[in-house]
Each structure stands twice: as structure tokens, then as C-alpha cells.
């Protein structure tokens, strides 16, 4: 019955209640938009989703509404994202290790972190334009390889920062204990830091993969689009985001429907990856020293 007491009708208490309401509404709007997006994608995508969509490549006249599927785009996207993630891994693991063991929270460490954050902020269209420039300089054509390189560049800062954030929380005592026993810094990195970093690495891989598979603006320039499944690194390849984009631009309703279905497939993959990373990192976190 507190509400009936006079004190609660003071302006500041009304303000408190009002602001709380505003905040709750804001939270509902932001989180609700996820539900709205998923709902729209499911409602539009599910009717057009069929077994053919995920098991067949486009047949003749596909873009006029005839049979076929988007296996080319699904596989192409998986190749692109997996390749990009692998490429980014090769560089991001050493960087994260170096940041932890050699630089720490020093001035240079923070410069490197800043540069990673800035790289993270560069939009994929600029990476795409850069990749295109690179392709011309190297004499490459739009191909799986070019797409992988650009996605690797995009994923590099994301993955490194994800690992760095996890490994930063490692207790210094662990490092000191190893150093006190006479191990070199590299041995610390290899034997101690790597193990502590494992949840960070898995999270980073899945995070990078999720970002890579959903990126459209960069592969538009570099990977091209084709109806075939790529057989070599030098061939162009289709990708899911572009499959969505191109099919929605079609005047045929059947093709547009398939665009929605492709969006649903992409969303399912991305959400599965995102939830998977959450689950996996929670599991692996059990085995680290805190």
C-alpha cells in the first residue's frame, strides 16, 4: 500500500516511476525487434523453403521461377566463411598471444588494440573496394580466393579482440608461476596461455565465422556470383547474402519467395553459430583457471 502514502506522489518519485517505465519500454522495443525480425523472416521464408532449396543447384530458368535450389550459395558461403576464418586464425592467434605475453596492458599493447578496434569499424564495403584494388594489382579475377582474403581481413580484428578479451582475464599469477620456474615467455604463451585461451579461440572462431558468412558488401566485389559450386580457389563462387539480395531484386514472385527462404537459411546458420559459441564457451570455461 506504499503507493497511497503521500511521499510517493512527490515529483521525484513520479519521475522515478516514469523513467523506469520508459526504460522498460525501451528494453522491450530493442529486444522485441529481434523477435520481429525473426518472425518476419520465418513467416516469409518458411513457405518457400523446401528440400530442393538446400540440395540442388539452380537449374535452367531458375531465375524465372523454374526448379532448382541454392546449394551453390550455401556451399559457397560455407567455403568463403570457413576459408576466411582459417586465414584470420593464422594471424589472430599469434597476435592475441603476443598481446598477452609480451605487450600486456602497456602503451604499445593499447595501440595495437586501438588499431584492431579501428579495423573492426571499417565497413565491409571499403574492404570490398580494397579487395577489388588488390585483385587488380595481383591480376586475380573475382574468385573464391579473393573472397576468402577479404573475409579474412574483416574477421581478423573481430577474432583477435574476442580472444584478447578472454585472455585478459587470465590471472597473472599463472604467468608468474611459469616464469618463476624458468620458462621463457614463449613457453608461457605455448603451454599456459594457449590452454587458457581455448574458450576464447572457439568463441572467436564462431564469431568470425558468423560475421563472415553474413557479409555481403565485401564478397559482392571479390567473390562474384555463379550458379556452379566452386571446384577450385580460382573460380568465382555464390554466397548466401548475395543470393538473398539478387533474388529479392527479381520481378518474379517465385524467385522473391526463394530470396526469403535463402534469408531464413542464412538466419538459421548465423543463429546456430551464435548460440553454439555461447554454449561451447560456457562449457570450455569450466576448464580454465580463474
Amino acid at each position: 500500500m506504499g503507493f497511497l502514502r503521500k511521499k510517493y506522489w512527490q515529483r521525484r518519485h513520479l519521475m522515478e516511476a516514469f523513467m523506469k517505465l520508459v526504460m522498460r519500454v525501451s528494453l522491450v522495443i530493442v529486444t522485441g525487434s529481434l523477435g520481429l525480425i525473426l518472425w518476419i523472416v520465418i513467416v516469409r521464408g518458411l513457405p518457400a523453403l523446401s528440400w530442393d532449396m538446400v540440395t540442388k543447384i539452380p537449374e535452367g530458368g531458375y531465375y524465372m521461377g523454374k526448379g532448382g535450389g541454392i546449394l551453390n550459395a550455401i556451399l559457397g558461403s560455407l567455403y568463403l566463411a570457413a576459408g576466411g576464418t582459417l586465414l584470420a586464425m593464422i594471424f589472430s592467434v599469434p597476435i592475441a598471444m603476443y598481446l598477452k605475453t609480451y605487450l600486456g596492458d602497456s602503451k604499445w599493447g593499447n595501440y595495437v588494440r586501438l588499431s584492431l578496434d579501428v579495423l573492426w569499424g571499417i565497413p565491409s564495403i571499403v574492404y570490398g573496394a580494397f579487395g577489388f584494388t588488390l585483385m587488380i594489382a595481383l591480376g586475380l579475377r573475382a574468385s573464391l580466393l579473393a573472397g576468402i582474403i577479404v573475409l579474412g581481413l574483416i574477421e581478423l580484428p573481430i577474432m583477435t579482440r574476442a580472444m584478447d578479451e578472454v585472455i585478459r582475464r587470465m590471472p597473472v599469477d599463472l604467468e608468474h608461476a611459469a616464469l618463476a620456474l624458468g620458462s621463457t615467455k614463449f613457453e608461457v604463451a605455448l603451454r599456459v596461455v594457449t590452454r587458457q585461451m581455448l574458450p576464447g579461440i572457439t568463441t572467436a572462431i564462431l564469431l568470425g565465422f558468423g560475421r563472415g558468412i553474413g557479409d555481403a558488401a565485401s564478397v559482392l566485389f571479390t567473390a562474384g556470383y555463379t550458379d556452379r559450386i566452386p571446384t577450385s580457389l580460382m573460380r568465382p563462387t555464390a554466397s548466401l547474402p548475395l543470393a538473398v539480395f539478387f533474388q529479392l531484386g527479381s520481378p518474379y514472385p517465385e524467385v522473391q519467395q526463394r530470396g526469403y527462404a535463402a534469408a531464413l537459411i542464412l538466419t538459421i546458420i548465423v543463429l546456430a553459430v551464435s548460440l553454439g559459441s555461447r554454449w561451447l564457451s560456457a562449457r570450455l570455461n569450466k576448464y580454465t583457471v580463474k
Partner: peptide
């Protein structure tokens, strides 16, 4: 509850946002 939802929101690819924008 809110944190994972925000993470998922951040993970959704731009092109899906585009579909949402187009349809809704």
C-alpha cells in the same frame, strides 16, 4: 536474458536486416 538477445541481434547479417526493412 537481455544480453544473449542483444548478442543475437548483433549477429544477424545485414542482408537479413534488409529483408526485414523491405517487408516490415
Amino acid at each position: 536474458v537481455a544480453k544473449p538477445i542483444l548478442d543475437l541481434l548483433a549477429a544477424i547479417p545485414p542482408v537479413v536486416y534488409g529483408v526485414w526493412g523491405l517487408v516490415a
